[in-house]
Nucleic acid binder design. Structure first.
Lengths: 291, 291
DNA sequence: TGAGCCATGAAACATATGTTGCACGAATAT
DNA sequence: ATATTCGTGCAACATATGTTTCATGGCTCA
């Protein structure tokens, strides 16, 4: 048992220890994890009353996960919650040398670059495209290979409030691609970056040929699916280090697109969203503690 | 003339009342204002020791500002510091003012918040998880509903250099879920945020039960799939405005995970990636101008 | 079935907590 | 100059806090 986590957050060690604990302590532990702010401020007895448990359980919980008592656990939690001081943080220096922490450095740079990339997305272009999306009779979404995840996310979110009008191109496999279904009045969203998959380019061309509104999400103006696009949403795929282009920007665009389209949908969209959520909840797609 | 500030924060009323207080109470009051976090957590006597004052001063300070005692002041400070609750989906869709550029503003806010959220991802946790991924015999990836897109992206990227070892849970539909397939030595990645889909929670539990390494990507430490997780990667889903939780952070984590796992794979991973790309190119999955 | 173990709740314990009364000293008013 | 008020520290108070102990009930294992 090589538990070599030198400095884990108290909540982490709590959660990882949960499953091996007695039932009651699990409940209490979950309560603490879910209400960690109150755990640090209110008293043990108050917590017990709200959680519907015995005060002693908290002491036992603390001891069960290695602390000397509730006081010590609480102290650890408060320290973990302490707001980030405007600290000098000498450690954040950009040491680039490859050492045992080369991985961490890689991740840091990646995240930094992606955060910067998000800033270069054109919000007006997104708003325009969303209006086009809102006005379309039907919406088709095409993305293949690594872009498939973006396409599916956009499809999923749009379907929440436009159930019948949104279609994922090739949703049931490669044979499901029917570019002939595009019509004038439709909107087609094509997502892609270099190297561009053949299917995405064909989708874009078919959309253009059919007279549908073409919305391209791509990494370059020179992208093949950008030719003849009515709306072109650009993001930086190559900016971040790593072996593979980044999709963070594309995801951000997709989400913004869905969000704006939703607000344009107004009360009707809101109602349909609620209906969908209710249906999901009723069919117990969602998990609840009381199982 | 009544009070000009109808609903001032406790700290504000404290500061505005400071000048008219006795010297010693001013010192104590300033100390409380400067260390309000400790004021809510540490005890009165501890504060007195650090501030170099008498414990009674705190009680007197509270009464001087209009509270019944230190307990009441502390309670007010505690409530003021309470973190903003994450509202359910449809609940947060309301309340957005309609204007000519409301859409653009919405997008801007969203992108800004997401860029900020990326900064709070723990890169060391990702590096650790990637090592676990690298060491695993097989890798299972579970994500459902809106998280499905993240799961698919991670599956796709990992498969590029570990073709046989990576499996998407439920890849061929809901009937394809076989939690019994998890074994010790496997790694299981579960992605989810509130409201948590039942399938994801079941996957996490099955992984834990099977003795597999559980890597959870979630929005909260209190997430059900985080229980018993060997690696917990957190991102901010609720931070950004919009009708739906943001997946940008989860995508960023997935990509970083894949990137680090790839570097750990070394020359072998690089070779397999090249093989995969060559194969895709040969079968004309990729578009070329001369195509 | 019986013995032992463990989880759990209630009550008793020692202690730390917030509060209040008191004494002393300085500043102010008469 | 004396009397009074007010600010301040100290110490005692009543109480709430975290902890521990004990009795009970359910469970497992022999």
């Amino acid at each position: 048992m090589a538990q070599a986590q030198p400095k884990a957050s108290p909540l982490n060690e709590l959660c990882s220890a949960l499953p091996s604990l007695p039932m009651r302590l699990q409940e209490v532990g979950r309560f603490v994890a879910a209400n960690d702010y109150d755990a640090t401020t209110r008293s043990m007895r108050e917590l017990a009353a709200v959680a519907g448990a015995d005060p002693a359980s908290f002491t036992r919980l603390a001891k069960a996960i290695g602390y000397s008592g509730w006081d010590e656990l609480r102290a650890a939690l408060t320290e973990a919650r302490r707001p980030a001081q405007a600290a000098p943080f000498s450690g954040r220096a950009r040491g680039r040398r490859a050492g045992p922490n080369a991985d961490v450095t890689l991740v840091n740079e990646k995240l930094e670059a992606e955060a910067a990339g998000l800033g270069r997305i054109s919000s007006t272009a997104i708003a325009d495209a969303a209006r086009a999306l809102h006005g379309a009779d039907r919406v088709w979404i095409a993305g293949f290979r690594s872009c498939r995840s973006v396409a599916e996310l956009l499809t999923y979110q749009l379907r929440l409030f436009r159930p019948g009008a949104v279609q994922l191109v090739g949703g049931s496999g490669p044979d499901d691609i029917d570019h002939g279904a595009f019509r004038a009045g439709d909107a087609v969203v094509v997502i892609g970056f270099a190297p561009y998959s053949t299917a995405s380019v064909l989708s874009a061309r078919a959309a253009h040929r059919a007279g549908a509104t073409l919305i391209a999400i791509a990494d370059t103006i020179a992208a093949p699916m950008a030719e003849g696009a009515d709306h072109l949403l650009l993001y930086e795929a190559a900016a971040s280090p790593g072996f593979f282009p980044s999709l963070t920007g594309a995801i951000a665009i997709a989400q913004s697109l869905a969000a704006v389209a939703f607000t344009l949908g107004g009360a009707g969209a809101k109602r349909r969203l609620e209906e969908t959520e209710d249906r999901l909840a009723e069919t117990s797609q969602y998990f609840s503690e009381r199982g």
